[in-house]
Amino acid sequence: MRVTVDMTVCESHGQCVFAAPDVFAFDDEDRLIYEPAPPAALARHVRTGALMCPARAVTIAEDGA
């Protein structure tokens, strides 16, 4: 799974951080940082994070897709 966040669209709602805190986080300056290739075990949380983004900034590409 590959994760991309369009930072021109992100509004820092933090819903992805709520859903998948091991993949998404805010750094000390409140910028969103994330793991672009999260382990498969976290895939469900990452998908929830993408679905819960009100700005629709999170895109997921499944492996092999």
Partner: peptide, 10 residues
């Protein structure tokens, strides 16, 4: 301001 703080509270 500070989206990180609200995440911590949640």
């Amino acid at each position: 301001g500070g989206p990180g703080r609200i995440g911590a509270y949640r």
